[in-house]
Amino acid sequence: MRQAALLVAVVCLLAVPVAGAVGAPAPQSAALQEDAASSPSGVDITVQIQSDGAARWTVSSKYSLEDDNATAAFEQLRGRFEAGAADTEFSVDVFRAVVPSVSDRVGRQMEIRNASRSSRVVEAGNNTTGVLSLRFTWTNFSRVEEDRVVVDSFSTQWFGDLAPNQTLTLRSPEGYDTENVLPPTSIVENGYRWSGPHTFDADRPFAVFTENDSVVGVSMVVLVAVGVLALFAGAATVWAYYRDGDERPVPWLRDVRRAVASRVREALSAESESEAEESAADADAAAGSAAAEPAASGASDDADSEPTDPELLSDEERVERLLREHGGRMKQSEIVEETRWSTAKVSQLLSSMAEDGRVEKLRIGRENLISLPGEGVDNGIDEE
């Protein structure tokens, strides 16, 4: 069975062959060669994915301190470790060595930053454990796609498999839900954990996380809301039809149909939006056959006149009105806040409008700047 390449390389106390691109195992320290009691009892890796695609790694080696000799050996070891003695413990250079090959494979520029070391002693009942931890940030470890973060940089060519007493924990970005994790595993300490011995397939682990305010899946609350709106539209249609048998159209009923269709489109997810439009179309067709006396307000029967009420505007018209009201330019996040639509719906709508030439999009850092054609997108907004 393949060993976890980087786990073996960075924990130089484990005299195990190194797989993949890492190279030969790191040398053991003289102190540990003399005192076998200081050999690590386990290695834990935690990878905290960030919303910008970076990953915060924590690699920890655990030592069972069963007696005074083991405790004394660990105290000497942690001193050399925190001092950065290159021939004793972890080295972030091992990870830096594999970054170029991983970067070439996924097509993103990567870098190891903010490396640090720490140590601690953990008391749990009658057991005492010494822990050495290496932490660093791996930039662009994941691919960012609008409201999704795709973890695609793991590979058996450099990471390998998990040996006994080794664990890997993958945690989602803050504010994100899980769309997919491969291979499937259980959730431990707010993360997806694989425990050794474990053999990974090629390009595994793999995960996709989605912003929790996006529209992946439709909740029961949304479905109930859509059902209530559809019921209201149906009741209005029946009441208008049976009121007095008059076949003249009712202007206010047309407005109700438009408002219901707009609310349905806002409530549903991007995946279910087509179904919502079909439901709204059915309600519109049924309401179109209704007849009742004209409303007392004497509103015009011309259904083709452009509405002025924001609730009666199309989604595209609402975005264009917002842009005009804000000087022709807005950040995409501001449009989400103003419309109270989901992030995914706004993203999909703006992409469609950009393709039609109705708006212009400019990526600035992690934010999109949206502007009306000709308004310009390179003034007044600093890159994050």
Rank of each mutant, 00 (worst) to 15 (best):
2 R>W: 01
4 A>S: 10
10 V>A: 03
15 A>H: 04
20 G>Y: 12
24 A>W: 15
29 S>C: 02
31 A>I: 10
36 A>R: 11
40 P>A: 03
48 Q>M: 04
50 Q>S: 04
51 S>R: 06
53 G>N: 01
60 S>Y: 01
68 D>L: 07
70 A>I: 04
72 A>W: 11
75 E>C: 05
78 R>L: 05
78 R>C: 09
83 A>G: 12
85 A>S: 09
87 D>H: 07
87 D>E: 06
89 E>H: 15
92 V>W: 02
93 D>C: 07
93 D>P: 13
93 D>F: 15
94 V>W: 02
94 V>Q: 02
94 V>C: 02
99 V>S: 08
101 S>H: 12
102 V>P: 06
103 S>A: 15
105 R>Y: 15
106 V>D: 01
107 G>C: 02
107 G>H: 07
107 G>N: 05
109 Q>Y: 12
114 N>F: 15
121 V>H: 04
123 E>V: 13
125 G>W: 13
127 N>G: 06
130 G>V: 02
141 F>H: 02
144 V>K: 04
144 V>M: 07
147 D>G: 11
148 R>M: 13
152 D>S: 08
158 W>R: 02
160 G>T: 07
161 D>G: 01
161 D>W: 08
162 L>P: 03
162 L>W: 03
171 R>Y: 07
171 R>V: 15
172 S>R: 14
181 V>W: 06
186 S>E: 13
187 I>R: 09
188 V>C: 04
189 E>M: 04
197 P>C: 11
198 H>A: 10
198 H>W: 08
202 A>H: 10
203 D>C: 10
206 F>E: 03
209 F>R: 09
216 V>C: 08
217 G>Y: 00
219 S>K: 14
221 V>H: 07
225 A>L: 10
230 A>W: 03
235 A>Q: 15
235 A>F: 11
236 A>R: 01
238 V>P: 07
239 W>Q: 08
243 R>L: 11
246 D>C: 09
247 E>G: 13
252 W>C: 06
253 L>M: 03
253 L>P: 00
258 R>I: 15
258 R>T: 14
258 R>P: 03
259 A>K: 03
260 V>D: 01
260 V>R: 01
261 A>C: 08
263 R>C: 07
268 L>A: 11
279 S>G: 08
281 A>L: 11
287 A>R: 13
289 S>I: 05
292 A>K: 01
293 E>F: 13
293 E>S: 11
297 S>V: 14
297 S>R: 10
301 D>R: 00
302 D>N: 14
302 D>M: 11
303 A>L: 06
305 S>D: 14
307 P>K: 10
308 T>Q: 13
313 L>Q: 08
315 D>P: 14
323 L>H: 09
323 L>M: 08
325 E>K: 05
331 K>S: 03
332 Q>N: 13
333 S>A: 15
333 S>D: 07
336 V>A: 00
358 R>M: 12
359 V>K: 00
360 E>K: 02
364 I>W: 11
366 R>C: 05
373 P>M: 13
376 G>E: 03
379 N>G: 11
